[in-house]
Write a protein that binds this DNA or RNA. Structure first.
Length: 425
RNA sequence: GGAGAGGUGGCUGAGUGGUCGAAAGCGGCGGAUUGCUAAUCCGUUGUACGGAAAAUUAUCUGUACCCGGGGUUCAAAUCCCCGCCUCUCCGCCA
């Protein structure tokens, strides 16, 4: 949520930001400014009435008998007027709030113009795209041959876009996750295993709702939602709190299973482990001071951490600066890491590093007190550290050998009992 | 799932209809004292939104907030209803 002062002082900046993101918000902004004016006026008038009511109320407390009864009768009228104001103000503030939740964050100037992911701008590439001198298999063929992946078995149990990891496939996933978590712990992150089924508030606070309801599994009976990322519970962890500046930054490595309905993606990426309803992810979450430069530094930091992980796994990747149209509502800027996937003959998105300024903090009421005693909204950021099994696509395909075996990346071998290869049984 | 107790400021905890933004203690901050530290004493100590004054660290003032949402009343932390959460006992259970 934006500071409403930005809308008051510079509505065109907000509208322009919406256009860059291809999330038009002209109407919402105008509507908010209109509601805001009305609200101010009503609030001022009703507060004056309340002041009078409180003052007289104190007098009534000291009176007795007829005098008291007369006063009470007189105040009945004021009480009625106050009620009338409340009746008008209530729905107005609700509408104002819900409109504010729809206004997108303003993208940074460094965000390139563009409409879709095709307009994202290449920042850098790392690693050599592998050349094979034998006909390659995709991860699913490899997985089925080596008895690592079972899609049909999963479909029987759970329907489309599900999977079963077996044997070394299961071990490989755990290895990747644990290696990554350890890497982040070494970097100073606190590992966090968090609830995956949460209330509405964290979903709204992190800006997945309203708007993203279609993408989330809802447990309606209990009015709870399955998270699509541990960003949700981890970022919301300190909601409603005022942290001490000395306790910032907070670096968290959230680990959780993630659930996504993939609504609107019917028919897309239907083969294999690329687009599935459930996966596991280690996520970096940063809560820091309200400072553009600091935010920017942490953005680079979490991006670098993720790159280190991919590099350690020996996977070629590229970093792209995500264009306006491919940016979500809450982000200021986003960098994606796309990792090479031979079967796609291209890079596939595996990581996404976002910075939000205080957009999420305002919704979450996540603040800190500075040395001088002043209270500010924090800045928040997050980035994937690793998401599996999607990353297994690259690992299995890139490390396949002519004889059908798959080489296990060096850094994972110790997590898999020291083995170097996954081979046929 | 059944029965009971409870949710008050950073923390502990008082407050059962009016002068309560809320006692007291702890903690924090400022000051005094002090070779240093500790102890002691004095003062101060929430957030949001608005107004006035001053203008770029201050001040005065109004309103709201005592888990959340409704209600009763001239007046609600205090009474009533709904929800959420915590604790205890019983049952069930990975």
């Amino acid at each position: 949520m934006l500071n409403i002062n930005i809308l008051r002082e510079n509505p065109d900046l907000v509208k322009e930001g919406g256009r860059k993101k291809h999330i038009p918000c002209d109407e919402a902004v105008d509507c908010i400014l209109d509601l805001d004016e009305k609200r101010k006026k009503l609030l001022f008038e009703s507060e004056e009435l309340r002041a009078a009511q409180k003052k007289v109320g104190k007098e009534i407390a000291t009176l007795e008998g007829d005098e008291k009864q007369a006063m009470i009768a007189e105040m009945g009228e004021i009480a009625g007027r106050i009620k009338a104001y409340e009746k008008e103000l209530g729905p107005l503030e609700e509408e104002l709030e819900s409109q504010m939740l729809l206004v997108p964050n303003i993208p940074a100037p460094e965000v390139p113009d563009g409409k879709t992911d095709e307009d994202n701008v290449l920042v850098r590439e790392w690693g050599e795209v592998p050349q094979f001198d034998f006909p390659i298999k995709d991860h699913l063929e490899i997985g089925e041959e080596l008895d690592l992946i079972d899609m049909k078995g999963a479909a029987k149990l759970a329907g489309s876009r599900t999977y079963i990891l077996k044997n070394e496939g299961a071990l490989l996933e755990l290895a990747v996750l644990q290696f990554t978590l350890n890497h982040l712990v070494e970097k100073g992150f606190s590992p966090m295993l968090v609830p995956t089924l949460v209330r509405r508030e964290p979903m709204v606070g992190t800006a997945y709702f309203p708007g993203g309801e279609e993408q989330a599994y809802a447990c309606e009976r209990d009015r709870k939602y399955l998270i699509g990322t541990s960003e949700v519970p981890v970022t919301a962890y300190h909601s409603g709190e005022i942290l001490a500046e000395a306790d910032l930054p907070r670096l968290y490595a959230g680990y959780s299973t993630c659930y996504r309905r993939e609504a609107g993606a019917a028919g897309r990426d239907t083969r294999g482990l690329y687009r599935i309803h459930q996966f596991n992810k280690v996520e970096q979450v940063v809560v820091c001071r309200n400072d553009d430069e600091e935010s920017l530094r942490f953005h680079e930091f979490i991006l670098a951490n993720a790159e280190e992980v991919v590099q350690a796994l020996e996977l070629p990747y590229r970093v792209v600066n995500v264009c306006g149209g491919d940016l979500g509502q809450p982000q200021i800027q986003k960098f994606d890491i796309e990792t090479w996937m031979p079967s796609r003959d291209s890079y596939g998105e595996t990581h996404s590093a976002s910075r939000f300024h205080d957009f999420q903090s305002r919704r979450l009421d996540l603040r800190y007190r500075d040395e001088a005693g002043k209270v500010h909204f924090c800045h928040t950021l997050n980035n994937t550290a690793i998401a599996s099994p999607r990353i297994l696509i690259s690992i299995l395909e890139i490390n396949q050998e002519a004889d059908g075996r798959v080489r296990i990346p060096d850094v994972l071998q110790s997590y898999m009992g020291g083995r170097e290869y996954i081979g046929p049984k």
